[in-house]
Lab assay of single mutants.
Amino acid sequence: GIPATNLSRVAGLEKQLAIELKVKQGAENMIQTYSNGSTKDRKLLLTAQQMLQDSKTKIDIIRMQLRRALQ
């Protein structure tokens, strides 16, 4: 079985993952909103794209940590 310490770690990672998935969803929504907007929305679009990139990276890292914890 999986050690108890790993189980609480997994629960924490799953919570983090859920949050990051919401951030990713929000960033994707912002990108959709701003991509057909005016030029003043360009900065917001770039910010949203950066957020999305960061979020995807975090999600990958969390998933990797989850896999390790579940081994």
Rank of each mutant, 00 (worst) to 15 (best):
S55E: 01
R9Q: 10
K15P: 00
M64L: 12
A48V: 04
T57G: 05
T47C: 15
K40E: 11
A18V: 06
T47S: 12
N6I: 08
G12Y: 15
V10F: 03
D60H: 14
N6M: 05
N6A: 08
K24T: 03
Q50E: 07
E20K: 02
V10A: 04
L46Y: 07
N29E: 13
K22I: 08
M30F: 06
L17Q: 00
G26F: 15
G12D: 14
T57N: 10
S35K: 09
E20F: 08
A4R: 08
Y34T: 03
L13T: 00
K40R: 07
G1D: 10
G26V: 15
A27M: 07
L46V: 09
A4V: 13
R42A: 15
D41K: 02
L46R: 10
N36V: 05
A18E: 11
R42S: 14
M30H: 02
L17C: 08
E14P: 01
S55G: 01
G1E: 09
A48W: 11
E28Y: 06
R63C: 14
P3W: 02
Q71R: 10
L70E: 05
M51I: 12
T5M: 12
L52R: 02
A18D: 05
R63H: 04
R42Y: 14
R63K: 08
T47W: 15
A69L: 15
L21Y: 06
R63G: 02
Y34M: 10
D41P: 01
M64D: 14
L52N: 00
N29A: 12
L70Q: 06
S55K: 01
Q71C: 13
K15S: 07
G26P: 00
V23P: 00
I62R: 00
L44N: 05
I61L: 10
A48S: 02
L52M: 04
K43R: 08
T57I: 14
L13A: 00
N36F: 05
L21K: 04
S38M: 08
L70Y: 09
K24P: 00
R68F: 10
I19N: 08
Q65P: 00
Q71V: 08
I62C: 01
Y34D: 02
Q25K: 10
T33L: 15
L7W: 02
L46I: 14
K24C: 12
R42I: 14
D60A: 14
T47V: 15
P3C: 15
S38F: 07
I59M: 02
L7E: 15
T39Q: 12
S38P: 06
L7P: 13
M30Q: 05
E14N: 08
Y34S: 04
G1N: 11
R9L: 14
A48N: 01
N29V: 10
L52P: 00
I61Q: 08
R63V: 07
V23Y: 10
Q50C: 11
L13Y: 03
Q50S: 05
D60V: 11
A69G: 03
Q25P: 00
L17Y: 02
I19C: 11
L44F: 07
R67F: 11
R67I: 12
